[in-house]
Amino acid sequence: MGTIPGAWDWLTTGANWTGTDGVLQRLGEHLALTSVSMAIACLVALPVAILLGHLGKGGALAVNLSNVGRAVPTFAILVLLVVATNSARYWPTVIALVLFAVPPLLTNTYVGMRQVDRDAVEAARGMGMTGGQLLARVELPLAAPFVMSGVRSAAVQVIATATLAAIPGEGGLGRIVTAGFAQFDTPKVVAGAVLVAAFALLVEGVFLLLQRLVSPARKSRPARRPARSTHQMEFT
């Protein structure tokens, strides 16, 4: 049987979806890993980047941090944490994913804050807005699309990268890939890869939908989608 029909068969076989190492279990693990990691990463990165962007300070730091972050292999961080804690459990993976997601989140959010029209900021200042009002009523609403697209691209990358958790033996969809690889079962590997890619694209779609719902004002204007900057791209 060919690889692609084989993968289709694997995906459409009900027995593969249930049980302790079934798709549903792995999908749940993957979702738990990535959502917790993204939530922590956002809690850490967004306030710092928004504050730095508001103050207009630390831009070089925010940008360089992302470059340094790219140089550090997530796989190495993951293994270092696994070896340091003597376990292949949940938290080493979450911490590795948070460290992976924070630098691009910081950079993209900072850049988004600085892309807010300076004239609008000046006008708000001229109207006597305090720093906090300026941030809450002008900068954040205007920067929101940029910030959201940064969060979206980080989420997609975190989902793809979370498969690495399977190497030290933690759960998630990566386990389907490593199991297929170990059993020389290529259709299973393909099925695992398809599941991860589908999950990532689904999340991307949900974020796009949220973005549209959250900013109804943008509908009336000609679509000015925030350009996905070339610097956002990250390997997984």
Partner: peptide, 17 residues
């Protein structure tokens, strides 16, 4: 762009055959 949603782990495994 779709390529980068494919995890490296899976892509390497897929290219083995």
């Amino acid at each position: 762009t779709v390529l980068y949603t494919i995890p490296s782990l899976a892509l390497f495994s897929l290219l083995v055959p």
